[in-house]
Amino acid sequence: MPNPIKYNKKFDELDEEEKKLLELNKKTIADFVEQSSSISDVNYATRNAHAKTYAAAKGTFQIEPDLPESLQPFFDKDKFDLIIRFSNAQLKIKNSGKDLPAYGFAVQIKDENGGLLANYPLVNFPLFPVNSVSTFLKLFTAVNKFYIKKWSSLFPLLIQVIKMIPSLLTGDMIRHMIRLFGKRNDFILSFDYYSIGAYRLGDQIIKIKIMPQSVDKNIGRKQKTGDALKNYLQAHDFAADVLIQVCYNLKDQPINKLNVEWKNSPFIKIGEIKIKKGSLLDARECTNELLSFNPFESKIFFQPVGKIQKLRDDAYKISVQTRRKINKLLHGKNS
């Protein structure tokens, strides 16, 4: 294999217009979170994305014994403890009707002292529909305003959705959208999960994929997603392979073009995620609702790479700061 491309901070740099749009977006994120309890009709402030928690669980990450030599320095133990949050990507929590099959599998990896090594918010769709930072920020801002102001903000939102359409028309995007539609009723733990954007592994740049082992896609067809998931995890062990791809050239493995798949970079298995049956946490407990899975809180050599990824840093920070402030106040009142 050729030598991997080394991480360079230029992959992450925003221009002045993008920075200004980000500041506007941060304001709407704070406004959304402040009003999120009434938006979702719950008694706590929710996240600005993946608001609905289906379940949270303890797990382990077991490292492959024959890991390639170049990867061994990053995994100095055979096993790491995990906290895993299963979620839905929608901004608004709804408890009636069927949820869209837009699922999250967020993984928090702990060191031997219980400190944070890395956060990886993974999703069940491998691509991102927007490459332009400006387009994404304008869209996300319009979405937040729509939830806050409703119909008075509908027209600006429609304009931004129309601008996004061209980036939805890649062959990879169309193929995966058709595949997702065909799997829309499948069990949440039968999906593969992806990092979408790239991450550092030291000086290397990688993407991550999780592939569940032997999970029946037909489980829980007549149940709500959260109920089916919790029932499964109470009664069964869960295991999934953890795979990575390495960036060798930007033509085949682009950092800032997220609506196409990486080509000509074989998947490397680096370990397995395991959840023992009965390892569920109380997903609605206040301390778990305060958990942050911000990938920029990871150790520096595990952090995200790319311009769209960089946006998540400030977005996560403002969201979690606002959410924790409100929820601690609410928790104090109820204690």
Rank of each mutant, 00 (worst) to 15 (best):
L22S: 02
Y7C: 14
K299F: 04
I196S: 06
C286M: 14
P295W: 00
F140I: 09
D237G: 05
C247K: 00
P101K: 02
S70R: 11
Y199K: 00
F191M: 09
S335T: 13
T46A: 14
I270A: 12
F74K: 10
F296W: 15
F86C: 02
G220D: 04
L329V: 05
M1Y: 13
T46F: 12
Y54G: 01
S96E: 15
S40C: 13
P126A: 07
T46G: 12
L258V: 02
F105P: 03
N144H: 12
S298T: 03
N131C: 10
L169V: 01
K217Y: 05
E289K: 01
K145A: 15
H236V: 05
R47I: 03
I273T: 14
A56M: 14
A57N: 00
I178K: 11
E69P: 00
P101C: 09
V130Y: 00
D216A: 08
I162P: 00
N249M: 06
D216R: 07
N294L: 04
D15P: 04
D241T: 14
S96P: 03
D12F: 11
K27D: 15
I268H: 10
V246F: 02
N8W: 04
L14W: 08
I273N: 09
K307M: 06
K269W: 13
P121Y: 05
S279Q: 13
Q35P: 01
Q321K: 13
D66W: 04
I318L: 05
K251L: 06
R324S: 14
F105I: 03
P166R: 03
G220F: 01
N185T: 15
L82C: 03
D111G: 09
D111T: 09
V215N: 03
I148K: 08
S190Y: 01
W151A: 08
A45G: 10
P101Q: 06
P65L: 13
F302K: 00
N288L: 04
I63G: 07
S96M: 09
R200N: 11
P68G: 11
F32W: 07
Q204G: 02
N124S: 08
D313G: 06
V215W: 02
K58D: 07
I174D: 03
I308K: 01
P2Q: 12
N95R: 14
S292F: 02
L311Y: 12
Q213F: 10
Y193A: 12
P65S: 15
P129L: 08
S96L: 13
S298V: 03
K307P: 03
R323A: 14
K94N: 08
L280A: 07
L122C: 05
I273Q: 13
L258E: 03
T170V: 13
P266Q: 04
A57C: 08
L330I: 15
S40Y: 11
Q223C: 07
